[in-house]
Design a protein around this nucleic acid. Structure first.
Lengths: 195, 195
DNA sequence: GTCTATACGCCGATAGAC
DNA sequence: GTCTATCGGCGTATAGAC
């Protein structure tokens, strides 16, 4: 799925990077193609040569990031065996990603894709979240997690994590995110822990 | 703060109601004033007679709903004395509101106001959320809630609740919301409960 | 106060030279 | 493949009759 043509994909990549920055900072609808032009120095014509239209830019971005997240979750699943370890690793991943690439998390978690991507499912039912749901289900089977609707379990556990990330991105939490990591992890786990 | 001129406010109200419906269904930027005209039968000119511009409609809507939510939280604070009762009541309120007026919750909790309202703070630091934060702080003082950053406590507790509401509104949870109420409440409380 | 008709700017998208 | 120039349309907002 990853293209191995670095020379050719360079402009594409610049466009996507700039679009990500602008979309998260000002929002999709407040960002014009002219803005992307100004940000990258790439002309309108060239932008439209690489992407069919503005929506296609957002779409590529979205699927790109979803794919990467998917991959990371698979990796976690592969390298950790218990649900508790996996869940912990996912929290670490999300926190680290938020610190290192806030725009990525902002765009994936908090932009309203359905408003600008036609025929896109709500994030809650996108692939990565389905995977997280499955992790929860397996945890129930192994007895690590209380028996309940797996989607609800997922909502409870990640609700905590996601909300903390949102407040961090909103600048409401004063300390750097990783200082909350342990406390948040414990709080989230308590929502699904067996007794 | 509430206007007692029902005759005069009628059109205003129709406009706001329609705008709420459209904004939550299609999003602010996908809703034109012409759409509001079509939805209400009120002409463009008349709409602009009542509101300075499109943004002003969203702004009025936003502050209206925030005020109402604020009021409800004050009421809960008045009628319940312990933090545990208050927290429980807030969960009930939010779930009930979600069932009875899904657009209201959708708009308050999940639309990206900062993208269309200039100079608006992030929701995380809006008045109702500040109030919820204070409830948490009081719970710590009374020994009902574990000592921690009150904003973090708020994020943990309401993270669970809000995420469940979101999944419900996204149509991902199959059963009606109130059937999850007890389970969600317990899960949320565990995130802040003293050991 | 409510309407219809219209002005006008912005932005998505294309044409066509190089 | 990249650029500049330009078009067409949509959508906000206003003018002005009633």
């Amino acid at each position: 799925m990853a293209k191995n043509k670095p020379e050719k994909a360079e402009l594409q990549d610049d466009i996507l990077k700039a679009a990500l920055r602008l979309f998260t900072e000002k929002g999709y609808f407040n960002t014009s193609v002219a803005d992307i032009n100004q940000e990258t120095g790439i002309s309108t014509g060239s932008i439209y040569h690489h992407f069919h239209n503005k929506e296609a830019i957002a779409k590529a971005l979205y699927h790109d990031l979803i794919d990467r997240l998917n991959h990371s979750i698979d990796e976690i699943r592969r390298t950790h065996k218990t649900t508790i370890e996996r869940a912990r690793a996912v929290v670490d991943l999300m926190f680290t990603l938020t610190e290192q690439a806030p725009e990525v998390m902002q765009f994936i978690l908090f932009s309203r894709h359905q408003e600008f991507l036609s025929d896109e499912k709500p994030m809650s039912s996108a692939a990565p979240f389905e995977k997280l749901c499955k992790l929860m289900l397996e945890g129930m089977k192994s007895g690590e997690i209380r028996r309940m609707d797996p989607r609800l379990a997922s909502a409870c556990f990640f609700g905590v994590v996601i909300r903390v990330i949102q407040m961090h991105l909103d600048g409401v939490l004063e300390k750097p995110l990783d200082e909350y990591s342990n406390e948040v992890w414990k709080a989230a786990w308590r929502t699904v822990d067996v007794q």
